[in-house]
Design a protein around this nucleic acid. Structure first.
Length: 569
RNA sequence: GCCCCCGUAGCUCAUCUGGACAGAGCAUCUGCCUUCUAAGCAGAGGGUAGCAGGUUCGAGUCCUGCCGGGGGUACCA
């Protein structure tokens, strides 16, 4: 949708203001209080050019445009100090906006800016053989949200799970498996059986230092392709993947490729050769490095003194492979901010290799998830498993549903959607660069600024349509939508495409959360104060159209976040 | 030591990239369900935006310094 309001403002002011239409549009603001109108044009920046105090400028502009009003979607204008405040005509707004949303339906605010372009997203990436905990959640849900967001903007997205499926930890697991494993080990919750093996290994290794050596030995065997070790590793891999896929199903995670670290075992040598050809590498302290000191990025280690490769080596192989395989227009790494330097090094090396596409690679970083005052870590034991969070959220949701809506068809399904909605939303609603303090209280809260609140708003709208039971039409009397709450709803709807664009530019799901929350507040305020379905059929038709449009936007927004737009709850 | 991020109501967070009196939710308190879902709505209290300077007509937002928290800084990922 084009910004018809902004266009109207630009056209209206362009002859009255000493600035280009573009500059005018860029300076337009949204007033914080409704007494200041719907859009505002501040005159400060013209003070120097026109050599007049801002209030006088505002006054002058008003006198020049006064005769033109109403102008397009602009109903009236008035001066408040240094501001020119503009009011939008609800009738024209509704006519243009609602018709467009209604006609386009789910396609509303889609765009084709990404048409024919591939966008790869590195997301989730848990370490195999460890249960999924809330620390893994952010990469998964942020990555998935961006996936769906960019898909809406026309990109062809590819979600890649860079599984931590290689390394000495597997040597440890193999040793533990051989020593303590039983036939029944994987009968139920295999992933926790693996965790137990891992913990058991470390316990035993305290008393028996030879275990560490054995682990290194087993991993070497694995690297050489030893059939027995490979077989055991594959078992671990399969069980882990099964569990992850179950969780991804619940979280609406968007993963297309499961190319973990092991996938790049045979691709690192070519990458290193390429670096050597470009004479970028050198030996320092017996290790193979790329010296990035002059860029303030230190030394990038590619091979340890014992010839072993590092995760940078694998990421380098991966980025080259992905460029070749997917020819991405953009590559997003949704990985915690602890790895900021790592990605700066990686992208710099790509640049030094002479590839200009280094600019299309972005590290979408995010803060830690803390539990209590501590970082969450497997070793410390202060860990919250995602499974437990989801189960508790689901149980609580079920209790509440049975209390409020006992006749609902599939309680368990609804409870899962709501519980998961709360968990996902809590993670997405905080801006990425902030750390999150995980608290059970917040994760299990369904009131206020939460996922369930948004879902509830959608459920109310769905319920309204069921009750209405007739076809919603766009041929309505637009002049009837004149209540302030209705206008507010429409002004908010109008901003949806802009918000999606902003969220995409900043790789920031929290922008969408904030928007949908505001839309929900607008809707609920309206809903409380006005009746939609009444004896007045023309008014009912008009309001039902508005309600449908809100539902379309709510539904689309929720889906992008990965929440189920509930029909009943 | 050096580099990066964070510091806003008791708590959790917003503040549309520098604009009008800093806004929400949770918690506390007061109202509102014989009418479309009360997981809601309306309202009250709660603030020196870590501190100190600077730039600007204007700073929570930009710059400098300090304080506090976190992360990174060559053989973990």
């Amino acid at each position: 949708m084009n910004d018809f309001i902004l266009d109207d403002i630009g056209a209206l002011l362009k002859d009255a203001v000493d600035a280009s239409e573009d500059v005018i549009k860029r300076n337009i603001e949204l007033p914080k209080v409704k007494e200041h109108g719907d859009f505002a044009f501040p005159a400060f920046f013209l003070a120097k050019i026109m050599r007049m105090p801002p209030p006088k400028i505002a006054q002058e502009i008003l006198s020049k445009i006064e005769d033109l009003l109403p102008f397009g979607s602009i109903e009236s204008a008035e001066v408040a100090g240094p501001y020119l405040n503009l009011k939008i005509s609800p009738q024209i707004l509704s006519k243009k906006l609602l018709a467009e949303i209604f006609d386009q339906g789910q396609k509303f605010s889609s765009s084709d800016e990404g048409r024919g372009r591939n966008l790869t997203i590195d997301l989730s990436s848990p370490n195999i053989a460890k249960p999924f905990h809330v620390g893994h959640l952010r990469s998964t849900v942020v990555g998935s949200c961006l996936y769906r967001l960019f898909e809406k903007l026309g990109y062809n997205c590819i979600g890649i799970n860079h599984l931590g499926d290689w390394g000495t930890q597997f040597g440890k697991l193999i040793v533990a498996y051989k020593k303590f494993g039983t036939e029944k080990l994987f009968e139920k919750e295999p992933i926790f059986a693996l965790l137990d093996l891992y913990i058991r290994f470390h316990k035993e290794a305290k008393d028996d230092s030879s275990l560490e050596d054995q682990a290194r030995g087993e991993f070497k065997k694995l690297e050489r392709g030893d059939p027995e070790a490979t077989e055991i590793w594959k078992t671990f891999y399969q069980y882990s993947l099964e569990e992850y896929k179950r969780i991804y199903g619940i979280l609406n995670a968007t993963i297309d490729e499961y190319t973990g670290e092991s996938f790049y075992n045979d691709k690192m040598e070519d990458a290193l050769k390429l670096l050597e050809q470009k004479r970028l590498t050198q030996i320092s302290q017996d290790a193979l490095i790329v010296d990035l000191e002059e860029y303030g990025l230190g030394a990038a280690l590619l091979k340890k003194s014992d010839e072993a490769t590092l995760y940078l080596t694998r990421d380098l192989a991966a980025i080259l492979y992905r460029k070749e395989t997917f020819d991405f227009a953009k590559m997003l790494y949704v990985v915690g901010s602890a790895q900021a330097l790592h990605f700066k090094q990686l992208f710099k090396i790509v640049e030094l290799l002479g590839f200009n596409w280094h600019e299309s690679c972005h590290h979408v970083e995010f803060g830690w998830i803390k539990f209590g005052k501590e970082m969450m870590s497997t070793r410390e034991g202060n860990i919250v498993f995602l499974n437990d969070v989801i189960n508790r959220a689901k149980e609580l949701a079920k209790e509440i549903i049975l209390e409020k809506n006992p006749d609902i068809e599939d309680v368990d399904k609804a409870a899962l959607y709501i519980g998961v909605g709360a968990v996902i939303y809590a993670d997405l609603a905080v801006r990425r660069n902030h750390d999150i303090n995980f608290s059970w209280e917040d994760a299990l809260n369904f009131d206020g600024n939460t996922g369930p609140y948004l879902q509830y708003t959608h459920a109310r709208l769905a319920s309204l349509e069921r009750k209405f039971g007739k076809e919603i039409i766009s041929d309505i009397d637009f002049s009837l939508l004149k209540e302030p709450e209705e206008k507010q709803l429409m002004l908010t709807l109008y901003r949806f495409p802009q918000k999606l664009k902003l969220a995409a530019e900043e790789y920031e799901p929290a922008v969408i959360c904030g928007y949908l929350y505001e839309l929900s507040q607008n809707l609920n305020s309206f809903y409380q104060k006005h009746r939609v379905i009444t004896d007045d059929t023309t008014l009912t038709n008009a309001r039902m159209l508005l309600m449908r449009c809100v539902r379309i936007v709510m539904s689309e927004g929720l889906k992008i976040l990965g929440l189920e737009p509930m029909e009943r709850m």
